[in-house]
């Protein structure tokens, strides 16, 4: 039982109207792992998460979360999972402490008063315990939501875009907290758009148009994409970017300040085109490491092509 992965689902399908929002997603997350769940907006991340924590019944597929059947044991799963919704969904007209007491009551935690007090201390919320949740800034709201999710000591945490609209410092603190919990044995599934966050995960799963199209460790996913990247640097990168578009081997051109990232699958053709443009525009070219973001944009473009 303890060897069983935290999440093992296969062939999940959810159809809204005539749209297959989730189309045969299989996912495996080991215990104690931080799994990233990535994909563009509307790719089915939230729906998949909702199916896995028993909020939605899949139209097809099955699986087990923490050893419980997602179709039949939704109630057990809810008890053991902490689910943090995409949108702040605690009561803005309640104080931090009142919100936590409410959650403690729902989970039947005893002694509620002490558990709430400990959670407040743990997450550094003690000083603001009497503040209304609605008056908190984004970072503090997220902290409150996290506190409410982990108060009942779940074995699995599902975080749906937890850091949207949160400043870098708060994000850093948030991830430190997640890693600390993970070290204690908590399994975390976190969906995100941010590539730096994806790189903080042990393993990532990339979903697009309801289908899982890449999974594995970050380095594996990057290597698996088989992309080559070169960087052009110089005063005239705007002109270089214009000239690069449509050249053989060039699939992505992205400006980063004064540098230009050029990405493509065909390494030889890419290098040739980039060198030519570098000469024409007087910029310097040097090879660079492919970034996760490049891979994702490639994957997104590919999955869109496959739809057409």
């Amino acid at each position: 039982m303890t060897e069983e992965p935290a999440i093992a689902v296969t062939g999940l399908v959810k159809i809204f109207g005539n749209r297959r929002v989730v189309d045969g997603v299989s996912l495996r997350v080991e215990r104690g792992e931080i799994a990233g769940f990535l994909g563009p907006n509307g790719s089915g991340k939230t729906t998949t998460i909702r199916m896995m924590c028993g909020l939605l019944t899949p139209d097809a597929g099955e699986g087990r979360v923490l050893g419980f059947d997602i179709r039949r044991q939704g109630r057990r799963i809810k008890r053991e999972v902490g689910y943090m919704t995409q949108r702040f969904s605690f009561y803005e007209d309640l104080t931090i402490e009142e919100n936590l007491s409410f959650v403690a009551g729902l989970y039947g935690l005893t002694p509620a008063r002490r558990i709430v007090r400990d959670t407040l201390e743990d997450l550094g919320l003690s000083g603001r315990r009497h503040q209304l949740a609605g008056s908190l800034s984004g970072g503090w709201k997220q902290r409150l939501a996290l506190a409410a999710c982990i108060m009942h000591r779940p074995r699995l945490l599902m975080l749906d875009e937890p850091t949207a609209g949160v400043d870098p410092l708060a994000r850093r603190m948030f991830w430190d907290e997640i890693h600390a919990r993970s070290a204690e044995g908590l399994t975390v599934l976190v969906s995100t758009h941010y590539m730096d966050e994806a790189e903080r995960c042990h393993r990532i799963n990339y979903i697009a148009n309801g289908r899982l199209i890449a999974a594995g460790r970050v380095a594996d996913v990057v290597a698996g994409a088989g992309l080559t990247t070169v960087v052009l640097e110089g005063p005239n990168t705007a002109e270089a970017a214009r000239r690069l578009k449509g050249r053989p081997g060039v699939e992505q051109v992205a400006s980063f300040g004064t540098t230009l990232h050029v990405v493509g699958r065909d390494a030889a053709a890419l290098r040739q085109s980039a060198e030519a443009v570098a000469r024409e525009t007087g910029t310097t070219m040097h090879p660079a490491e492919t970034m996760l973001e490049d891979v994702f944009i490639q994957l997104m473009a590919a999955s869109e092509d496959s739809l057409r």
Binding site: G54, R79, Y83, T85, S89, Y91, V103, L106, Y107
Partner: peptide
Amino acid sequence: ERGTMENLLSMPA
């Protein structure tokens, strides 16, 4: 509307 229902349902209520 406020999205708190989603949260309620994900908890054991």
